[in-house]
Design a protein around this nucleic acid. Sequence first.
DNA 1: GCCAATCTTGATTGATTTACTTGGATTCCA
DNA 2: TGGAATCCAAGTAAATCAATCAAGATTGGC
Lengths: 144, 144
Amino acid sequence: MKLSKKSEYALRALLELTLVHGKATLQRHEIAARQHIPVEFLEQILLALKRAGLLSSRRGMRGGYGLIKSPEEVTLGQVIRVLDGPLAPIGCVSKTAYQKCRDCPYTDNPRCPVQQVMGAVRDAIADILDHYTLADFAAGSPPG
Amino acid sequence: MKLSKKSEYALRALLELTLVHGKATLQRHEIAARQHIPVEFLEQILLALKRAGLLSSRRGMRGGYGLIKSPEEVTLGQVIRVLDGPLAPIGCVSKTAYQKCRDCPYTDNPRCPVQQVMGAVRDAIADILDHYTLADFAAGSPPG
DNA sequence: GCCAATCTTGATTGATTTACTTGGATTCCA
DNA sequence: TGGAATCCAAGTAAATCAATCAAGATTGGC
């Protein structure tokens, strides 16, 4: 049940980009300094977020990164899925990346006890993270 | 946000032991066969559950493992913590294994945005798993 | 008392993942 | 054209995961 450093850094980087959204862009070393993130590691995270369509970037001397979408329409769930994959604790209850469980005596019967509990856990996690936007996150207050 | 194979197998093994609770004990190969678990791997899981005080065991020819506690008083949260460690996605929001987060610009200020979201996620997970007993699990119906 | 079945314990392995690092290529602006 | 930035593919060291293996300890049955 762990969040990777990659996802944590991604959230923190997006926090900084949300704070300056509309006003400025930031270079990787600025984000790294503000959030104490190893700069070269941060780079590959920003790149992934860019490929996922969340960030724009600009090379060269006055380059940097900026948030493309408005902070109200990006959820933390989306971000974490980009870097860590599905939120579900187990493949057979994932809604975004379902995977049939083999080697299980119930083989995908929805009455499988493991599937039932983990389905509930997945829903609880997704309920929070898919409703928590970057705007909520930067404001430091839960959505609602 | 993943559940390890170890924890999954532990839950499935305990499911079998719950089903025969009070009536019989089971040997590791019986559990392994019913739940398709590699027997030597299962062994170290059962041992960990025994050390955690959940199982009793008996060596020799008519040996085997049995559930010590009643299925109503063992929660899935307890089981998963034995094998996978804390439920919290990040150390600084764990209640059973709190760890101060260093290298974070907020250094443990409860207003840290990451701490706020992940705290909510931890609570949601624990709310489910710490109220879901082995009895609920074996019955295939959520607690309540 | 001996044997075979069973649990107990610790070490080891191989694959994968994590958290970075390195080295270069490309782009932009002055 | 040169320096400052992003882009991108690999590589690496350490940890973790999922087993596997090899010996020992204990018990029941004969």
